[in-house]
């Protein structure tokens, strides 16, 4: 299993654990801006990140020289996805309780990072989705 896949999967597992822990917090009645974080840690940080890692590992080879496409694009996907998710996890509760320009722009920046992460993943994966 390549290093990038291991990094994706282990980070996904951390997100999974964090999401479940956050679920307890929500069940205890602390809700301020945390519900969207809970959902996105599960669906984006856990499920989607796990898929990204496994796709990079298991999908058909791109070429003999570059069997997994561009490893650099793969790492950029990883970095942007997780920085975007982290910024959101910090800024969204602040924005929902004490809205201010700094947390507001953090959310905008987070939105851009997460979208670009998805775009890079699709660019790097598209050519590997092919008939044998």
């Amino acid at each position: 299993m390549p290093l990038l896949t291991r990094t994706f999967i282990k980070t996904a597992m951390i997100c999974f654990t964090l999401a479940l822990t956050l679920g307890i917090t929500l069940a205890a009645g602390v809700t301020s801006g945390l519900f969207p974080i809970y959902i996105h840690l599960l669906v984006f940080g856990w499920l989607t990140q796990l898929i990204f890692g496994v796709v990079f590992w298991m999908f058909p080879k791109y070429s003999v020289e570059q069997p997994r496409g561009s490893e650099t694009l793969g790492w950029w996907t990883y970095v942007l996805l997780n920085i975007g998710l982290l910024l959101r996890a910090i800024a969204e509760p602040i924005q929902s309780t004490e809205s201010n320009p700094f947390s507001g722009w953090m959310l905008v920046f987070s939105a851009i990072l997460q979208f670009v992460a998805g775009l890079l993943f699709v660019v790097n994966t598209w050519a590997r989705v092919k008939e044998r």
Partner: peptide
């Protein structure tokens, strides 16, 4: 999702 999140921010 990015459009909605950005709107939450600004």
């Amino acid at each position: 999702g990015a459009l909605i999140l950005a709107h939450k921010g600004i």
